[in-house]
Amino acid sequence: MKTSLKILVSILTLVTCFSFNSCDKVKNPYPPKSIGELDESLYPGNFDDYAFPVFTANANADRNVLIEDYTGHKCIYCPAAADTGHYIANDFKDRVFVSTIHTGPTGIESFQTFNTEPFIYNFTNEIGLNIGRYIKDLPSSGFSGNPKGSVSRVAYENNVALGSNKWRAAANALLVSNDLKVNLQSVINYFPATKGAFIHIEAEILDPVLNANNLGLVVAFMEDSIVKPQKFPLGSPYPSDINYDYVHRDLLKLHLNGGLTGTSIGSKSPSNGKYYFNYSFKIESPYSADNSHFLIYVLDKNTGEIYHVIKDHAQ
């Protein structure tokens, strides 16, 4: 090869090599508050004036329990199970919460289909169906059909998904041991003018054995209640065994922050040992702030166990 050609090739190579090398000079290391966290447009005013909440010391020392009720509007024994969950939550107010999830073990099964009158309302959603499949695939699942429910996704008598007759005992066991491994508190600021909710959460890992990267924070948007038909057992007082005015309660609608495991706690760096998360959500029709709430919980991404759950409202 001629020398001039060698020089030309070298210059081109040099230019190419150096062009690969770039650097990003970051002048503001903190992400803007409105990007990825809070939607500024949901604040009715100048967002620079928005006052982020200052959390005080979290006085809670109790582990709360989440009952996930896997149900279907054509499942005749599901109303009784739903009542059981509701009664337990009432008996242990602010300690036990219910999340009603319309799903079978494989997702939509015959109890959840919505293609024939009067069962044409679609109670299912992607996250709920994924939870159903996830529970089915757990080593100690027990999720064979509806109705079943899990209690903080902790195995009780070798199963995670339990018949409703065991929910109270399973919940009791967790309440008695009261092993609070992760603490949570939240502040929700709601702006009716924009229907925007700013959800601020503080998470604190109390059990030093737990690794923040193995913990997921889930913010679930829940509908308080909706009246829709529900199938009942033969011999029920309802015509054709269908209660057209059945009140479906505590319905899981979506996870604000991603999939099954939500946001990794370890994705944030702690401040004084506590992790802070901010989310914004517009409560649009058909939902409303006065008929909805949020369930905020921390789970173990490996085992699925829900270590703690709190409930908050956008009001």
């Binding site: 770039s22 650097c23 970051v26 503001n28 290391p29 992400p31 760096s269």
Partner: peptide, 23 residues
């Protein structure tokens, strides 16, 4: 010499430089 590294930003709470140059 010029050397740079690329690593995706893996933090929510910081804007990390994904390309860091040294020269």
């Amino acid at each position: 010499s010029l050397v740079s590294k690329y690593q995706a930003d893996n933090r929510d709470d910081l804007v990390l430089p994904e390309n860091v140059g040294a020269y």
